[in-house]
């Protein structure tokens, strides 16, 4: 809307009258989607995909940038009056109105699946992430499990119309047909674009797929070792794909939706936040970030999975262990609070 310079001028002029508030705070009364602090989105449509999954379409206000297929964005929703943020992949193709596809499995996702309705407001951060399509055409293999289909759906819908004969195999693991998100859309896409070959694997019928087993995979996709591989889903699944690809020298492009936590042996820990003068006990299965949130102490965070580094907080004393690798870290300096626990005491400058 308009030239940024002109817009800036009008905003500054309006700011003289709205001082000390930002003029956008007043514009909100008329339904504007942006404020001095946030970019917001308004839900336009909600589509049920499976019994526990919905796709939420939204329009985004000023500050949003168009996503690239495969990226995710931090989405803030209000649960019991409190703003909580989680990362969600954008399931819509590039150049369209964005959407997220959410599977109910905890506090925020259940809230979205049960309550999201047209007209509701979502809080948004800009799309980010390196789970992106290759720049040059090659044979591709997508391996996804469960809600891991979401970024891949965006990629397929973006890629196939662009290059209809592109050679793409999708191996998609889900519990059964009913819980398989986008099952029919994928079949339609394959009908339209013969280069796409989807393989559905329902664990209820065929048992677990061991993604690190080369023979099992060869049955589904004989030339899997020659393809550029993408994997998305739970940590255990993604790690299995990585193991197999590693064995023949490949490095797949991956996105993890969760972390498999190292067993802490039931040990409790203690963290201290010096700036807010707060000492907390950290439960055996909790991270520093989660313990702080439980005590209503907000720390910065993004993906909550150890990938984006937006949760860095300076450790000033003590030590932490990484819950994914079990690695001990005792040097003072920034640490990722979303994947660390005190070992057993840690002091943070926060």
């Amino acid at each position: 809307m308009g030239h940024p310079g002109i817009k800036g001028f009008f905003r500054a002029a309006a700011g003289i009258l709205s001082y000390p508030q930002d003029p956008r705070s007043f514009a909100q009364i008329f339904g504007a989607l942006s404020s001095a602090h946030y970019t917001r989105g308004r839900i336009t449509r909600v589509r049920r995909e499976t019994p526990d999954t919905v796709t939420v379409f939204f329009t985004a206000g000023d500050g949003w940038i168009p996503h690239r297929a495969g990226q995710w964005a931090r989405i803030g929703v209000e649960v019991d009056g409190k703003r909580i943020w989680r990362p969600y992949s954008i399931s819509a193709p590039e150049h369209g109105d964005p959407s997220i596809t959410v599977k109910a499995q905890g506090l925020v996702s259940e809230h979205i699946v049960e309550r999201a309705a047209p007209g509701n407001v979502l809080y948004l951060e800009r799309p980010e992430g390196q789970f992106l399509l290759p720049d040059t055409p090659t044979e591709l293999l997508f391996m996804v499990a469960g809600s891991g289909i979401t970024p891949v759906m965006s990629m397929l819908q973006t890629l196939m119309p662009r290059r209809p004969d592109h050679d793409v195999v999708l191996i998609y693991v889900s519990r059964n047909r009913e819980s398989c998100i986008f099952h029919d859309e994928i079949l339609e896409l394959a009908d339209q674009f013969p280069g796409l070959r989807p393989v559905f694997w329902f664990t209820e019928e065929r048992g677990r797929l061991d993604a690190s087993d080369a023979d099992a995979l060869a049955e589904l996709c004989p030339d899997h070792a020659d393809r550029v591989t993408y994997a998305c889903g739970p940590d255990s699944f993604v790690s299995a794909v990585e193991d197999l690809a590693g064995s023949h020298g490949g490095t797949p492009v991956v996105e993890r939706f969760d972390v498999t936590r190292q067993f802490s042996g039931g040990q409790r820990g203690e963290v201290r936040f010096t700036r807010s003068d707060m000492t907390l006990e950290v439960g055996p299965d909790e991270t520093v970030l989660e313990a702080a949130e439980r005590a209503q102490h907000q720390l910065p965070h993004g993906c909550r999975m150890g990938i984006c580094h937006s949760c860095l907080v300076p450790l000033t004393d003590g030590a932490v262990t990484n819950i994914r690798t079990g690695e001990l870290h005792r040097e003072p300096g920034p640490v990722q609070t979303c994947v660390t626990r005190p070992a057993p005491h840690a002091v943070f400058d926060a």
């Binding site: 000390p20 508030q21 705070s25 404020s35 001095a36 602090h37 946030y38 209000e78 009056g81 409190k82 703003r83 909580i84 209503q296 907000q298």
Partner: peptide, 16 residues
């Protein structure tokens, strides 16, 4: 502050 909303937070509010 418990709302975790910078639009209505003690660290960002400037009053008239």
């Amino acid at each position: 502050d418990w709302m975790n909303d910078k639009e209505i937070h003690s660290t960002t509010w400037e009053w008239d």
